[in-house]
């Protein structure tokens, strides 16, 4: 195994064939899956699922408005987990490898994405258990999923930003706190003309979700912008 990795890395700068790229990805998938911090994000995901199951377990009569807010809390758990996605204690040793950082970060996200999708589907299902009358009211799954995806993308983009602009190896904790603070500030202020967390059947629902979509695009673009290694080092390096 180590020999193979060294081989791939050694040849990467000069090789341009698709076969080599595929082999590189296959090897990196294994290493990135081992380097990913699985434990904390899994704990967060589990807590999110437990939250989503609370109406089912304790109060089946809770209406969709409350269930929506519970799902938002679950989505925030996911965002907290996503903030830790780019944590890499070995960052300074992998900084010198010829594999570009966007590829490594994309692999990490790609590895987690199917798990995250399954997790979110489970959360949606759990949140809809309980009273049949309440279930009949229905919940706009697409819109809620958009909110969750945006929150997670924001967390990843912020982490990528921290990685890009500082020498921090583990941006997760700080970014997690920042995402929480951001959400609390937006919820507390509900700034006129920029409401994001609108209740169900609110007339501003459509507009708010257009804002969510814009935010998602901004987050993805922000991540794309922050992923590449800077040509020159920004900020000071930390240890």
């Amino acid at each position: 195994m180590p020999a193979g990795r060294a081989d791939v890395r050694g040849r990467a700068p000069t090789a341009s064939g698709a076969g080599t790229r595929a082999r590189l990805v296959a090897v990196l998938l294994r290493t990135e899956s081992r380097a990913l911090p699985w434990r904390s994000p899994l704990a967060a995901a589990l807590v999110g699922l437990l939250l989503a199951a609370v109406p089912w377990a304790f109060a089946p009569e809770l209406d969709q408005g409350v269930r929506l807010n519970v799902l938002r809390a679950t989505a925030l758990c996911g965002a907290l987990a996503a903030a830790f996605l780019l944590d890499d204690p070995a960052r300074h040793t992998t900084g010198a490898v010829p594999v570009p950082r966007p590829l490594r970060q994309a692999l990490r996200v790609g590895l987690v994405l199917p798990v995250a999708a399954l997790w979110w589907a489970a959360a949606l299902l759990l949140s809809q258990r309980g009273d049949a009358a309440v279930r009949a009211e229905g919940l706009p799954y697409g819109a809620v999923t958009l909110e969750a995806a945006t929150l997670c993308a924001l967390a990843v983009a912020l982490s990528a930003g921290v990685v890009r602009c500082t020498g921090v190896c583990a941006p997760g904790a700080g970014v997690g706190g920042a995402v929480l603070a951001l959400v609390v500030v937006v919820m507390a202020l509900q700034p006129d003309g920029f409401e994001l967390f609108v209740p169900l059947r609110d007339p501003r629902w459509e507009v708010a979700h257009q804002r969510w979509a814009v935010l998602l695009a901004v987050a993805v673009l922000g991540w794309a912008g922050c992923a590449p290694d800077p040509v020159r080092r920004l900020g000071r390096r930390r240890g």
Binding site: N69, L80, G172, A173, G177, L180
Partner: peptide, 15 residues
């Protein structure tokens, strides 16, 4: 030693 625990508990308390 997980740095995730405190933000997670914060989220739980808020919820």
């Amino acid at each position: 030693r997980s740095a995730l625990l405190a933000p997670l508990v914060t989220l739980l308390l808020i919820t």
